[in-house]
Design a protein around this nucleic acid. Structure first.
Lengths: 256, 256
DNA sequence: CGATACTTTGACCGCCCTCAAGCATCGTGG
DNA sequence: CCACGATGCTTGAGGGCGGTCAAAGTATCG
């Protein structure tokens, strides 16, 4: 996997801004077609031959979102699906009284919009400047119904997402605060590694509040646990992320 | 939906055993083909025309499991998928140190085995006598690749499962003990209603420990919350289930 | 630099867990 | 028919993990 070079795409803990990092490391240069997409191998499109890819390209639209912009919102009718090519997105649900649960973070290569009908049951918000391939829902569904491999690939992605969701249930239902934070960092590391190849620098484009809402904790507890991991020389907290010093120990604390 | 008659299939709080109830209300009489399956409308098979259904039938096998028998286990290689036609199944994950998280309960009509490859990442155990339609994985995959509507239907089921999983994340991450128990009962009611039409009698084929492991609580807390709901005249605890007295209040406590 | 947003740290508290005992139900065998 | 052990459920007393409240520290950006 050489989709992204390691040298100039590394997460730079001291200086690089997200837009800067992501415009360099990002997947699709505006206006170029799917054929040149750099997250293709990670995404839905890996199942498609060049002909199908061109067809898909013909009704896709590249969109950009600034940090904090809504890509779609809970309750809104679902009329498009997305493939994230650059940036990071928070997926969250709200209760009527304002309590929030983050159900996931989407990174480059991730697909948004598995629920192909009805209303969105969570919101998707750009955490940093974001680029997506956007597909109108109707056209996308028609495309799928005519390409068994694409449907099959999408199923695999959804099924994997379901497995991850069950793992998250284990985390939320049965793990301690320290285990949750350790598992979160270890999990994110593995995802980023597939994207930028870096095994020790873990970008955290989300706030502590977002992490807390993802892990079923409060912002204070997340902060305390990060500090604890830091004191124990397992991580170093850097701007917009962490550097992992002792991955084996981190994975052990994560309680698999 | 008249697949199941109401009169003699009601959950009987005082006398009926699970095997008794389920053999009467159950979906498929041993040896009969898919065409007569009574949970068809709820399941994967609703997407199939009679010809495809016959083809599917040709490589299906009806299996029975006694209460407490394993249908499959976490870590075991995945070589079959199942459609539950009668009974109830607990889906659970274990941590190395023995902590358990129940990731779901399967009821008649539910599909088991969305992850079509690798190893099972949870165990499926019969809570009561169970009947399943069993399909060898390879044949099933081949069947799917040739029937777009079936693949699409399976995708819908998986996608719905994912949505439910996200709802469960909200429950585990952000709801109080009372809200969790209320939401659990309200959710089960809606699922049973589709199966047996009963809106107030909610069978609970699982133990309090199973419920606790599903809700991220302890058995004592589940028991206390059930007692509290009972004291507040919202439910009545009956053998093997609950009777709902005040559904609106229950749904309100569930914090939607 | 001052305003704003985010993070960290500390002191205290409460919800749920732990530990322990008692109760109900059911199948089994005397 | 009842004694019984096994299993599961309920209830109570007390403690701890993580939440709440409050304040100080830090980065970013006009």
């Amino acid at each position: 996997m050489d989709a992204v070079s390691n040298s100039n795409c590394e997460f730079l803990p001291d200086a690089s801004s997200w837009s800067g990092q992501l415009s360099v490391c990002g997947a699709m240069r505006g206006g170029l077609e799917c054929a040149s997409c750099r997250v293709k191998a990670l995404s839905l499109c890996s199942a498609l031959d060049p002909v199908d890819l061109k067809e898909l390209d013909s009704f896709s639209k590249t969109s950009h979102f600034e940090a904090r912009q809504h890509i779609f919102e809970q309750g809104q009718t679902n009329d498009a699906v997305f493939n994230l090519t650059a940036g990071a997105v928070r997926l969250s649900k709200l209760l009527p009284d304002g309590r929030r649960q983050v159900v996931g973070f989407a990174l480059p290569g991730d697909f948004l919009g598995f629920d192909l009908k009805g209303e969105h049951d969570f919101s998707a918000d750009a955490l940093v400047p974001v680029t997506v391939c956007q597909f109108p829902l109707k056209r996308f569904q028609q495309f799928l119904s005519e390409r068994a491999p694409a449907m099959q690939r999408l199923y695999e992605l959804a099924s994997h997402e379901l497995t991850m969701a069950q793992e998250q249930m284990m985390l939320l239902g049965r793990k301690t605060a320290e285990e949750r934070v350790a598992a979160f960092l270890a999990g994110l590391r593995n995802r980023w590694e597939k994207i930028n190849g870096n095994k020790v620098l873990v970008p955290l484009p989300m706030t502590r509040q977002d992490i807390a809402d993802y892990l079923g904790l409060t912002i204070e507890t997340v902060s305390r646990m990060m500090t604890r991991l830091s004191r124990e020389k397992i991580i170093v907290i850097v701007p917009d992320g962490v550097r992992l010093l002792d991955v084996p120990r981190l994975m052990q604390l994560a309680a698999v």
